[in-house]
Design a protein around this nucleic acid. Sequence first.
DNA 1: CTAAGTTATTTGTATGAGTAAAGAGCTGAG
DNA 2: CTCAGCTCTTTACTCATACAAATAACTTAG
Lengths: 246, 246
Amino acid sequence: MRGDPAFEDIKLPLASGSRRIHGSVARDLGIAILAGRYAPGDVLPGEIEFSEQLKVSRTAYREAVRILSAKGLVESRPRTGTRVTQRSRWNLLDPDILAWAFEAEPSESFIRDLFELRMIVEPAAAALAAERRSGLDISRMGHALEEMGRYGLSTEIGRAADQAFHNTILEAARNGPLMALSSSIAAAVTWTTIFKQRRSALPRDPMPDHRILYEAIVAGDVEAARTAMTELVRLALADTELSLKA
Amino acid sequence: MRGDPAFEDIKLPLASGSRRIHGSVARDLGIAILAGRYAPGDVLPGEIEFSEQLKVSRTAYREAVRILSAKGLVESRPRTGTRVTQRSRWNLLDPDILAWAFEAEPSESFIRDLFELRMIVEPAAAALAAERRSGLDISRMGHALEEMGRYGLSTEIGRAADQAFHNTILEAARNGPLMALSSSIAAAVTWTTIFKQRRSALPRDPMPDHRILYEAIVAGDVEAARTAMTELVRLALADTELSLKA
DNA sequence: CTAAGTTATTTGTATGAGTAAAGAGCTGAG
DNA sequence: CTCAGCTCTTTACTCATACAAATAACTTAG
């Protein structure tokens, strides 16, 4: 894939994120857990031993474990040590966890589950947005759409515009928790998009569907917005499935 | 605080969980942030000064900050210090954050947003459950329903059965991320239930609606399950609004 | 006035010593 | 033999201290 002009400029969204040690260790361990290298119930090596293995201080290692623990991946107690918790207790919608999951080659069923959730949430969000959008929302969406059309999804700018478009819809829905949820998923979707692009050229022009959605929200047509977004997610799923089989 | 009679019999769902210092500090600061005592953009005092104020070591304080940072509440950088992030970056669906939010007297609009989200997600989850439930799911739900009827929602056992009932529905939907989402919300709902009970006796018998939902899922009737759950959430919202005004 | 370099402040990392919790195993009474 | 209660030992937890790295603000050369 080297030199393929379509990917050269991809900046991994929140990839290695913090260059701080505790952040990197948390990320590495998080990926390892999500990849199944440490299974639920497994006990990690003791603090001293493990931090020496990782060539970091106990301080940094412990802070990393606190991060993982805050996301529900592990649980530490004196005497028992630090063990990986049951999958049902993981905060699967945490943005970091989603990012780590996609770094760890997510299972097909996990991707399917995410799309199922998108299919539930995003059309409803679009419907709310159609009801509540302000003039500012509309102008932002319009601008994003224009940039998206001009640069296409194969460029960094185009993808940023796409995200801005969807983000504005969420903001227009005026619901904090809903926004937190969808933007977590959106981050994951970005990853699937990158996946798609890795395997095959983008198989479809996404602009017409985006425009239909935009018009519906501008018109304040709740049901049209809902169906338009449904269609958008459906197509995204179809594309993703295609590229997963490729 | 041991022995405060107001709290003695309430088992805080996953409340102060760890009595470890870093956990308590994270919880206290988290509540303070969600209550608005530290606003987005505010810079916390320096590590040394603040940890002295709180009478804990810098180590413990830093681990607390890592927890908050993992949940998106704060962000630390050398030289600039640790500052509260914009609300849009908070992981509002994190179970701890929801619990803290309800400890901090949540705004009415926040509760409304949560119910709006429930209204979107839970009927869909019930529909999926009707499609995918196994015999084991059905027998679990039946058992929970029976206990719920026997003990009522005013007892600890009854509330546990209620949670088990809803939890089984989620499991039956066979979707990890959806389950993570809904069980986060469920925790919050528990808090609102406690709120309700504090202010007024439960104003309605919840059993008939639960039974309708149960029957729909047993029958595998997707649409009936969806509408039954919609009704259940709608009633819960009505009850909550009533008690908020009381 | 601009740009490059310097400084000072704050978080980040490291290390070692000591504390507290919690399961394992032992002990003794029944 | 069984089991309650105690001791023991392992492990994470807390603390104090020192030093490193990063970066915003300042300073100075051009």
